[in-house]
């Protein structure tokens, strides 16, 4: 859970992509990391684990994006994937009411398992097919608000709304990580001493870290 704040300057975040098959999870992330859509000449071997390095307000962020298998029969494996993640992007297809229902199930599950520590983004993809829309904007947005998630509209095909989605998510995850660090900073003296209990030998370096681990945050 404490993936953020390594070294005080670089944040490492894990983001899971959840959603039914064929809603465009993979296209979304390929568009974001490689700026490609349906390209037959994709040089990457795979599009299921992608990383992106960002610099947000002077802080370095390493984003690791974990795609998950969306087929219904793999649904039960979700908890193994989203364990320890800082953010989740829940994708549905605006032309497919059913995929929106799936998102609702995911939200319930995530909140139950991970509480409020995880930043949720609900994403309506394929807005280029707006004429076939089956999930209304109002319904989706009010639902997102009711569960404490942000709602975005994207199109991987037209490259719309994707940058904003990830940038917003990173900012929110950074806020969460910073809040967590502050909390940890208060209780650091306790946890540090309990950890040191396991330690055996240490003569010279003993003095340095006690102050260091608080200030590093």
């Amino acid at each position: 859970m404490a993936a953020g704040g390594m070294g005080g300057k670089t944040y490492s975040f894990k983001v899971v992509l959840l959603g039914e098959g064929c809603v465009g999870k993979t296209s979304l992330v390929l568009r974001y990391c490689e700026n490609k859509f349906n390209d037959k000449h994709i040089t990457t071997l795979q599009a299921s684990f992608l990383t992106k390095k960002l610099n947000i307000t002077g802080k370095r962020v390493n984003l690791a994006i974990w795609d998950t298998a969306g087929q219904e029969r793999f649904h039960a494996l979700g908890p193994i994937y989203y364990r320890d993640s800082n953010g989740a992007i829940l994708v549905y297809d605006v032309t497919d009411e059913d995929s929106f229902q799936k998102v609702k199930n995911w939200v319930k599950e995530l909140r139950k398992m991970l509480g409020n520590e995880i930043c949720l983004c609900i994403v309506g993809n394929k807005i280029d097919l707006d004429k076939d829309r089956h999930v209304s904007v109002e319904e989706a947005e009010s639902y997102a608000e009711s569960v404490g998630a942000k709602h975005y509209h994207t199109s991987a095909k037209l490259n719309k709304g994707i940058e904003e989605l990830f940038l917003d998510l990173c900012k929110r995850m950074m806020e969460t990580a910073q809040a967590e660090e502050r909390l940890k900073g208060n209780g650091a003296s306790q946890s540090a001493s309990s950890r040191r209990g396991v330690q055996i030998v240490d003569d010279e370096l003993q003095a340095t870290p006690a102050g260091g681990c608080c200030s590093s945050g």
Binding site: T26, L45, Q46, A47, S48, F74
Partner: peptide, 23 residues
Amino acid sequence: SKHIFNAIKVSKKEAASADDFLP
């Protein structure tokens, strides 16, 4: 995993997604 990705890529002619990889 890399070998699996290669197998999928050669079969499908596109980058493997998680939907392909896990099965």
